[in-house]
């Protein structure tokens, strides 16, 4: 009996001592369609709201490949780079390809440029994240509180929560237009631009992914909010045990 217990303890010790810490982070993908380049001395920080608290996920600068990183516009496409930011990093370091998190969206068929997409990974468990927001922070800022929030997205399971509202808002607005009235020429133009096939469609719900739409802040009315991009979160979960 004693021998058996000793054996069992030895095996258990070996097993426990070797176990990898459980990881519950996430892959965060986002598209930035409308974002200003970082001013000198400023950077962006992406926060997630989890259990009522804001947690920083990533810090980056948006830099022009040509103007800020010295790349020859004849050699590279005129794109905006999303570069990982660390305190104290100089411009040459910031522009390195090893810091490349992605690019701001740009489609230019003439130059065959199909740019866009940013990916960051985080150790933060985002399975219960309810929203994310993007703030502008001064470089070297030690205050953990966000300084100036410029974008925000509500997060839903596979469906961007803002989208249903956006669709409803657009439909309500389109209902006020009379494109056939010759005395309202603007109605016809607005209807052509914003209504009909141009009403946003619901994104298809995707298994294993949580999604949101980034809205520029401030906005007084959700119906007038400008969409600045989208964000998708892939939590570290395995849903295939059986």
């Amino acid at each position: 009996m004693v021998r058996a217990l000793t054996l069992l303890s030895a095996i258990t010790l070996g097993l426990v001592a070797g176990c990898v810490d459980i990881y519950r982070g996430a892959i965060v993908q986002f598209n930035l369609r409308r974002i200003d380049r970082s001013a000198p001395g400023e950077h962006y920080t992406l926060f997630a709201v989890v259990n009522g608290g804001a947690v920083p996920i990533a810090a980056f600068k948006v830099l022009s490949a040509a103007r800020d990183c010295g790349q020859d516009p004849d050699l590279v496409a005129d794109v905006d780079l999303v570069q990982r930011y660390d305190d104290g990093a100089d411009r040459a370091t910031l522009c390195g390809t090893d810091r490349r998190l992605g690019l701001v969206d740009k489609i230019d068929l003439a130059t065959a440029t199909l740019a866009g997409g940013v990916k960051v990974t985080t150790d933060v468990d985002l399975r219960d994240a309810t929203s994310v927001f993007l703030s502008i922070e001064p470089d070297g800022d030690r205050d953990p509180a966000p300084d100036r929030v410029v974008m925000r997205a509500e997060i839903g399971d596979g469906v961007a929560p803002y989208r249903p509202q956006a669709i409803e808002c657009r439909r309500d607005f389109c209902a006020t237009l009379d494109p056939d009235d010759p005395e309202k020429p603007n109605d016809a133009m607005l209807f052509e631009q914003l209504c009909g096939d141009n009403i946003p469609t619901m994104p298809r719900a995707r298994r294993g992914v949580r999604k949101g739409v980034l809205l520029r802040l401030p906005y007084a009315d959700i119906c007038a909010a400008v969409e600045a991009g989208e964000i998708a979160i892939v939590p570290a979960e395995d849903d295939t045990f059986l």
């Binding site: 993908q29 598209n31 995707r206 298994r207 892939v234 849903d239 295939t240």
Partner: peptide, 12 residues
């Protein structure tokens, strides 16, 4: 379809 980075999916 020009599929974005956010159009990531975890197929089963």
């Amino acid at each position: 379809n020009a599929v974005d980075a956010v159009d990531v999916e975890v197929n089963r």
